[in-house]
Design a protein around this nucleic acid. Structure first.
Lengths: 341, 341
DNA sequence: GCGTTTTATGGTAGCGCTGTCATAAATCTT
DNA sequence: AAGATTTATGACAGCGCTACCATAAAACGC
């Protein structure tokens, strides 16, 4: 016995067939109107549109995806949402997708490639039109999926490496290097570095390496570094600087992996009565608004997060097919001189 | 002539039928193994699992959704991503969904109910298992969709009103009221208020009203207010306070709609050499980490954003059916005395 | 040892939509 | 005016999966 139609679902959910019947056309014609595809007579279109409005028809994307083997979803895999950096990227993506039919599905990997792999696989179950991930480093399985899938791929933030399809970002190694060069040029000699516990943040590591190589070129090296045993935060920066200075009171500049921690460093200086810049330089990374709104704007590097997200999403929408050549887009960075180093 | 199987899709994408064939079972049995549903002999499960691994099978969720009239997607509609507040909520949601089969799809409404409605409709096309929106205020159409849909609904942040299904949040009116009472009690009399341009941020408006009514009860009223003609930011707070004080140098406390702007207020005081708290009290809202990491921690109200998101998602997962009674969960708030008011 | 329940598996018919091909009518050629 | 092209529409199968039965075998009760 055939299953009763609509037995296990909402009885009053209109389908394309209902729309077609009401408009007196075939399903496929109604479908064409919905998708604005193919040649449709104006009068027909109007009738179908009226029927849609009358019934309150909402297309079923699951059915559409199944029938056409392509969804309007864009999978976005970000390492974290705790810091405003990745929401900024997401905002850029969202801006590019507004007015398109695409919708972002987001996942958070906690900087863990294995979690990234797991979420990626569960996202692929939706036949996404595109996948956005952070960084160029993935598990072999994840990389295989990204390479062999029938969808576009953008790898964000970092461009130091070989992308699967598109990479949009900046060279973090170079940013670290420029930081070192800039600070040496400004007369700083005794460098400290305050890191945090995320060992898998490849970008922070690349900046660190870049900084070290700039120091080396100048015949210098890090005098001290401290690893705060917890996630990055303003408090982490504040405490880390206190510990660094307790052991090495003679540092003349401390570089932080990001602005949040650098702000904490400044707060420590305010608390301890240390003259920022004259007595101790403070340098961050990201160029967050709040750092620039301080009475003495934070010296830092502006990363173009919104632009990265927006550019990536726009690039992905250009063509459904993956082109033969890989694309690398360098959004660059700006040194913000600021007043703290 | 029947269409060639897999004609318009990736040829090597294994389906459940392939898995079933390889494992020597029927499709439906393989399906049960994938969904861990129904009684399955251990030996059969093992054979199917082996086949899945061998083929690298990834289930097609579009097909599953279509066949079962229920997806594993959770639609999340947030007003903004520019401020860390909503990413915090999202983080809570994400935490609750980890280890479940559910995935969040996010949309950003820019505090515009019409955009909310538009995105909501496009999300409903995916037959989401649940919808999360911010606030209790929606367009009539959106409200109708939320009420009549076959999915759970959580309205976040605010509990001053009648929810569709579940509301999780706090009373912003009361938070504003308590702010006023607290500050009056501490001896402040000449109140200023610095708002920003988002007129549709109902929560900020509710806090404003609560504050005013507390002042009224004490026989006071706002001496001055300034509306910064742009979105909320630290710079907005800094500039707004400068303008307020230029016109009303005799204010003894200024309340800000959020911590970001309040931080800006403090930065202005630092710049202008105004003794915070003694000369001018500063009060925010949200209880962001950065405000608490300052040498003088910001006086503010802690909103429990992560908890709101997490609680809502957990509650939504409890049952697929919408219960008869509506649920309102008050996550409350804490006054952080701080050192700035 | 004979019904009764439980456990394990399968057959089949869609879910709602769109790709493919076919066809009819309108428009354009020459 | 006959053919060639373009425009507008439809028939139909099938995308990959799961709900709904049905059935067979095993376990249980007394």
């Amino acid at each position: 016995m055939p299953r009763k139609r609509n037995a296990h679902r909402s009885p009053d959910m209109p389908t394309l067939a209902d729309v077609a019947r009401l408009a007196g056309v075939s399903e496929i014609t109604a479908s064409r109107v919905v998708r604005a595809q193919g040649p449709i007579a104006d009068s027909t279109r109007a009738r179908v549109l009226t029927a849609i409005a009358e019934l309150g028809y909402i297309p079923n994307r699951a059915a559409g995806t199944l029938a056409s083997a392509g969804s309007t979803l864009m999978s976005v895999l970000l390492p974290s949402l705790s810091n405003i950096v990745f929401p900024d990227v997401l905002r850029g993506i969202h801006t590019a997708l507004t007015e398109t039919a695409f919708q972002p599905v987001i996942g958070v990997t906690d900087y863990d490639p294995l979690i990234e792999e797991r979420i990626l696989v569960s996202f692929l179950a939706w036949q996404p039109a595109a996948v956005i991930v952070a960084g160029l480093h993935h598990t072999p399985t994840a990389r295989r999926h990204l390479e062999h899938g029938r969808f576009r791929v953008a790898e964000l933030m970092d461009i130091d490496g070989e992308p699967v399809d598109i990479a949009v970002g900046m060279s973090h190694r170079q940013a670290g290097y420029e930081t070192g060069k800039h600070l040496v040029q400004r007369g700083y000699r005794r460098f400290g570095y305050a890191r945090h516990n995320v060992t898998t943040d490849d970008r922070a590591s690349a900046r660190y390496e870049g900084l070290c190589s700039a120091l080396q070129e100048a015949g210098l090296s890090l005098v001290a570094e401290h690893c705060y045993p917890d996630a990055s935060s303003t408090k982490a920066g504040r405490d880390a600087l206190a510990i660094l200075l307790a052991a090495h009171p003679d540092l003349d500049v401390v570089v932080f992996p990001n602005d949040d921690m650098a702000m904490g460093g400044i707060f420590h200086c305010m608390y301890a009565g240390i003259a920022v810049k004259e007595k101790l330089g403070i340098f961050g990374f990201n160029g967050l608004d709040i750092g620039q709104a301080m009475p003495m704007p934070l010296s830092t590097i502006l990363s173009k997060r919104f632009l990265i997200g927006k550019t990536a999403a726009e690039k992905l929408l250009e063509s459904r097919e993956r082109p033969a050549e890989k694309t690398i887009i360098n959004t660059g960075f700006d040194i913000i001189e600021g007043a703290t180093a």
